[in-house]
Amino acid sequence: MSKAINIINSTTVPLDRENVDTDQIIPARFLKATSRDGFGKNLFRDWRYHDDDESQPKEDFVLNDKRYSGKILVAAKNFGCGSSREHAAWAIKDYGFDVVVSSFFADIFKNNALNNFLLPVVVTEPFLEKIFQAVKKDPQTVLEVNLEKQQIMIRETGEAEGFEINHYKKTCLLNGYDDIDYLISMKDEIEKFESTHI
């Protein structure tokens, strides 16, 4: 299966909360696995269930709200702050999201997301507000995220905004390339560097 991403059309899950930290995205007690798989079921665990009991979901949390679903998670400012645990990006991806939209991402989270072909889209505060309003009014609202064109659009109204992504990363995502493949291809240069580096 190709990991590449380009155009994503989807309804969204709106998480209107600022400073969502990686301890919320995936609590530490679920970091004990030694593989990368299966973290999705513990995504936002403590916000999703009472006392860890899956038969007792917290009804008012968006992931438990039947009206909302899709491949795009929309969150308020400073998403992914805190710990460097890549498990946070794995959990979001494993749950089924391909894109996270916010007005501001924490650094390490953004890198981790990109390394897992989870596209972080940074929008302006006013545009984020528009998305939240549109989705609250109509949960069926579809966003179109176009990586090639670097554009995010609310399909119904046609309102759109461009987003930044570094050229190198964009190429990687569009083609399904990993950083590690690139670095491995540079081994000779790295060894040469080492011979002069103190």
Binding site: R36, S84, R85, E86, H87, A89, I108, N111, N112, N115, N116, N166, Y168, D178, D179, I180, Y182, L183, I184, M186, K187, I190, E194
Partner: peptide, 20 residues
Amino acid sequence: FGIGTSEVEMVMATQCLMQS
């Protein structure tokens, strides 16, 4: 600085990282 696990793998494999 702190890094994610994919980056841990990169450093293990090449002693390098991609950083802006």
